[in-house]
Amino acid sequence: MGLLNIFAKPPAKLVRLPSGSFTVDKDGRVLVSTLPQAFPKEMVQDIATHVLSAFRSAQEAQIPVTEFIVRYSSLKLTARELRGGAIIFLVPQTFTTTAP
């Protein structure tokens, strides 16, 4: 019977936007995280890469930036520069709960 499982549909899973924070060093390594384990690690890495890249491009353009607040319609991302790395906070936004 187990053979039939080979043809079973792969499980469908929608990824919830997480609530929590994590810190990354200047090389993009995640040091500490309070994000749910269900949130994909690749996505955390992706966020870290984008944020560090944004801080670096500001530095290269000689625009001093210590904090980014990125407001998407469903998520607020706050990233603070931390000795070359960053601490990143994620707060999902819904119609009923909107972070300040």
Binding site: L17, F68, I69, V70, Y72, S73
Partner: peptide, 9 residues
Amino acid sequence: AGPLQQLEC
């Protein structure tokens, strides 16, 4: 996460 509404630096 939906469209980017605003970026504050």
